[in-house]
Simulated scan of single mutants.
Amino acid sequence: MKKVVTFGEIMLRLAAPGNQRFCQANRFDATFGGGEANVAVSLANYGYVAQFVTRMPENDLAAACLMDLHKYGVRTDHVVFGGERLGIYFLETGAVSRPGKVVYDRAHSSMAGIRPGMIDWERVFEGASWFHWTGITPAISAGAAEACREAVEAANRMQVPVSCDLNYRDKLWKYGKTAAEVMPRLVAGCDVAIANEEDAEKVFGIKPEGFDAATAGGGIDSRRFGDVCRRLMERFPRLRKVAVTLRGSINASRNTWGGVLCDGRRLYRSKRYDITHIVDRVGGGDSFAGGLIHGLLAWPGDDARALEFAAAASCLKHTIDGDYNLVSAEEVERLMRGNGSGRVSR
């Protein structure tokens, strides 16, 4: 089995039940989640040795988090311990015309206190076939950004392919540096970049001509994003593939979903899914990233198939409560073949 490494922060997720607002909730549903951990869970489900690397406190909450990851087959051999708290995020799920909300409580978390030298990346990447990180990690703190740089450079030395989901989070860049200042050096070491329809603009000022996500609704023209992919590849010559997820937001309960993938010569466009009754959209981009990594590793040279797998995997994630995409590769491929009826399997 191929080994994939992901690096980032996992948090306690406290979600208001159903579609309740924060002010209504008198309890919260507790699970765990975070971008890179979500990708690791997806890949473990697809049969990979998925190694999630992070820094955690030594307490019962962190132990419960590790047990949760182990339940889904994620390896945590290289987790380092220190600091005093696990980050938390609170979720209010939107409905129809009311958008969802996220409130972070992750300042001074164990992961925010990580520093270069705390992780032996040479050991982590022994036998690895892939390394994945997201733009959330360098947004947490200067130390996390430097640790991420250290990881990317080690992966480059050891010839481990590197992917990055740009994942811009405005609420997190608070330590005196901007994404535009920090991200270029990190993305320069990547072989594959993933973004949503707004990330490239918010991080690098690259956007499709005449596109406004706020007014696009469900009608996003995927052909507009070929130029975004090519401009990213021109700016970062190491990149050999760029994928962009395309979410058409009709309202909080109904989205269209798909993506494009560019290899520098050709633009591939996935099937567009109409997701009419969203259960949970958090982790949708992570499920796309996990699906794309699987596709690129499983079917080298067949970028169209890899993209279709990623889009279908993420479509299914929207039907699952929680951060993790708890589907098998067989279920994803069934949807790719057009079996989306939802009939009971007996």
Rank of each mutant, 00 (worst) to 15 (best):
L267G: 13
V41C: 01
G226M: 01
Y273H: 12
S163R: 07
M67G: 15
T245D: 12
V260F: 10
L292T: 03
D321K: 13
W130C: 05
A63L: 08
L66P: 00
E201K: 15
G18W: 04
G284Q: 05
A304C: 07
S129Q: 12
S163N: 09
A37S: 13
G301E: 09
V282F: 11
Y175C: 04
V4K: 07
A16T: 13
M11N: 09
D321E: 14
I119V: 15
H294P: 00
Y273R: 03
G83N: 12
K2R: 13
V96Q: 14
A289D: 13
C262V: 08
I320E: 02
A44E: 10
V4S: 05
E181I: 01
H78V: 00
A180C: 00
F211W: 03
D227V: 13
V103N: 05
R281D: 10
Y268Q: 10
P161R: 11
K241M: 14
E146W: 02
L316V: 10
D321G: 11
V39K: 03
R106A: 06
I278F: 11
I275E: 09
R254L: 04
V102M: 06
M67L: 13
Y89K: 12
E146R: 13
G47Q: 10
S270G: 08
V74L: 04
S163L: 07
G301R: 01
S163V: 11
A139M: 07
L239T: 03
G218S: 13
G295W: 00
P184K: 05
E36L: 04
I250F: 09
N251Q: 11
E308I: 06
K202N: 14
L326G: 05
N38H: 02
Q51N: 13
G219T: 11
P184N: 08
G210Q: 10
I250T: 12
T6K: 03
G219F: 06
V260N: 04
S328V: 01
W173P: 00
Y72D: 14
F204N: 04
K177A: 14
C229I: 12
G117D: 06
D286C: 08
Y268P: 00
A298S: 15
D68N: 15
A214V: 07
K241N: 12
G219L: 09
Q24W: 03
A154T: 14
Y48V: 10
N196P: 02
R265Q: 15
I119G: 00
D120S: 08
N339G: 02
A15S: 15
V39Q: 02
K2Y: 08
C262R: 10
F7M: 00
C164R: 04
P116L: 00
R115L: 14
L166I: 15
T276L: 11
D221P: 09
N59R: 10
E330Q: 14
S42N: 14
G73T: 11
C164M: 15
F32G: 01
Y273D: 00
A62C: 09
G8S: 08
G301T: 05
G94N: 07
E201V: 04
N196L: 05
L186Q: 13
